[in-house]
């Protein structure tokens, strides 16, 4: 599948072997770190830059290709352009006296540094989030994600919520995605041979062409699910009965270490966040080290 979120890579690195639950929690923790306010823009870029280096290191560990990261960035390109328009070109509301002019047009239209920096900042955050998700999806099989998902839902069992049915449904859906994609491809070819043009045509015609794909696909979906339920039944599946599980998630030493590392990172970045916002003179210190002007 070609999507923003990449595809499991066939390696067996330490990141691949981590417990998916640990990976999901770490992902969320690091994402929060991306969204903490780190004082002024200069600080923000420096600290997020640091975070980026750390993420890059994790990518290296998990053999996530940098190329696929760049490719997935392509998908948010449109969003970035959109943000530029919103933050940079739309006149800034409120008090503009404290802002720094970047370009002032003669008709009174002004682009401020703050607007541009804010766009860059948001894009930077998005990029970081994207790289984190990419690490998760390219080192974790969808099935492992479902097992983790089931585990996170498990407290709901206390209120008699059928979590195992949900995760069974989810795993069957994942199992059948490639099958249905190849089926859709076959149907499309058959209809093309009957003169359907899926590319061209106006709206009405397009809807008609899509029907020629969707209807057969649904019909086959239903017949498949019929047969599937028979097969499951024949092998003794009872949705509400207890089953044992072939796959178990093992929380090992490496997972403890991973959690520990993530905790340190969270602690570190929270402290930085606190310092940049509450300790006077901290900004100046950073500025002195890196020699950047304050905005």
């Amino acid at each position: 599948m070609n999507s923003v979120f990449g595809k499991l890579t066939p390696y067996n690195t330490i990141i691949h072997r981590l417990d998916p639950r640990v990976k999901i929690i770490s992902l969320i923790a690091l994402m929060v770190m991306c969204f903490l306010p780190y004082g002024n823009y200069a600080n923000r870029f420096i600290i997020l830059g640091g975070l980026f280096l750390i993420i890059l290191f994790i990518m290296l560990l998990g053999r996530v290709s940098f190329l696929s990261f760049l490719k997935s960035l392509r998908h948010i390109w449109f969003m970035m352009v959109f943000l530029v328009i919103i933050f940079a070109l739309i006149p800034q509301a409120g008090d503009t006296s404290t802002k720094h002019v970047m370009i002032a047009f003669e008709n009174g239209y002004t682009i401020y540094w703050e607007g541009v920096l804010q766009t860059l900042h948001i894009s930077f955050r998005l990029g970081l989030m994207l790289s984190l998700t990419l690490i998760l999806t390219s080192t974790t099989s969808p099935m492992d994600l479902t097992y983790a998902f089931e585990w996170f839902l498990s407290p709901l069992r206390l209120i008699k919520f059928p979590t195992q049915i949900i995760s069974m449904t989810l795993s069957l859906a994942l199992r059948f995605i490639p099958t249905l994609l190849s089926e859709a491809n076959k149907i499309m070819k058959a209809q093309k041979s009957r003169g359907v043009d899926y590319q061209r045509g106006f709206l009405g015609k397009k809807i008609k062409s899509v029907t020629t794909l969707i209807v057969p696909l649904l019909v086959s979906c239903f017949s498949r699910s019929d047969e599937l339920s028979l097969a499951m039944n024949a092998r003794g599946y009872e949705p509400y009965e207890k089953r044992t599980s072939y796959n178990i998630l093992i929380f090992g030493l490496k997972d403890v270490v991973a959690i520990f590392v993530v905790l340190i990172l969270v602690g570190g970045f929270s402290t930085l966040c606190y310092f940049t916002n509450n300790v006077e003179g901290f900004d100046d210190m950073i500025n002195m080290i890196f020699g950047v002007a304050t905005f």
Partner: peptide, 17 residues
């Protein structure tokens, strides 16, 4: 071209709609 060359795929019943 597709009018000239009729193509019946495997399990063609799946194209009915």
């Amino acid at each position: 071209l597709r009018k000239k060359v009729g193509m019946v795929f495997q399990f063609p019943e799946y194209q009915l709609f």
